[in-house]
Nucleic acid binder design. Structure first.
Lengths: 132, 132
DNA sequence: TTAAATATGTTATATTATAACAAACGTTAC
DNA sequence: GTAACGTTTGTTATAATATAACATATTTAA
């Protein structure tokens, strides 16, 4: 029932890098960045990523195979994620919209399937790329 | 302006396999299945997949790296996709819900970004797995 | 303080996807 | 018909993403 989860050494190192990046990071680019800190193998990165995702500290942007820090303390331990992705500059922003998340959490399909999580990705043109 | 797009040989073969499968297929499992038909290399598969996606004949289930036939003639040339995915049996169903798609097509974020496409994936427990 | 759970380190390998180049095919305009 | 263009194919090689399996160490909690 521990609410506060202390992160391990590798988990801290990798979360730190993802939080400081202002763009989604790929696993092997993370690996490259942490090699000076003694993390040498892909598995060490993937294991930390897996744990951080479970804790809701980061999310995977599925269509990009990349990882971003959760900017949304409301997001229910990574059970409900929404992103906007610019197809030109690849900028990714986590969408934090109460109405949207409420709508999706309550969504029911015809089959009666129980939904525990969702992930929504919008693709388009960000305002910066629209201008140019 | 051609409305009717005739598929090439490889595209037909690969669409056929995906349509006959009742589950999402992975690229290399498709490759294995079509080797007897003379398609030998991954690129031949990936190129056909890419084209079929553009035409809206199939969709990629991003979180599974797998491909399903479009069951939804309404889905706007693969610009608006929604799936339900059972985390137990991995069954994937394309959701065809007018209200949902209308809601998402009209969704606007705070930044004013223009959305051209979206992909939504719900994860949970299907009715069959719920019973057991 | 010892058992259980979690995290680490390491090597090897599996899986998914694209680059680069050459040739063939299909459509359209003339 | 045929030249020009875009699309598709075939092929080899390689890049990028992710996991298996095993041994050891560390932390947590009864």
């Amino acid at each position: 029932m521990a609410q506060i989860q202390t992160l391990s050494k590798n988990q801290k190192i990798i979360l730190d890098i993802i939080e400081k990046a202002n763009e989604p990071l790929k696993a092997y680019s993370i690996l490259f960045n942490v090699q000076k800190k003694g993390i040498k193998a892909p598995l060490q990165v993937y294991r930390a990523l897996e744990k951080l995702i479970k804790l809701g500290k980061i999310h995977k942007v599925e269509s990009r195979n990349a990882f971003v820090a959760c900017k949304n303390s409301n997001c229910d331990i990574s059970k409900a994620t929404a992103f906007s992705i610019c197809e030109t500059c690849e900028k990714v922003t986590e969408i934090s919209d109460q109405k949207l998340s409420k709508y999706l959490k309550n969504f029911q399909d015809k089959t009666g399937m129980i939904y525990k999580k969702y992930n929504l990705e919008f693709y388009g043109l960000c305002t910066a790329c629209k201008r140019s």
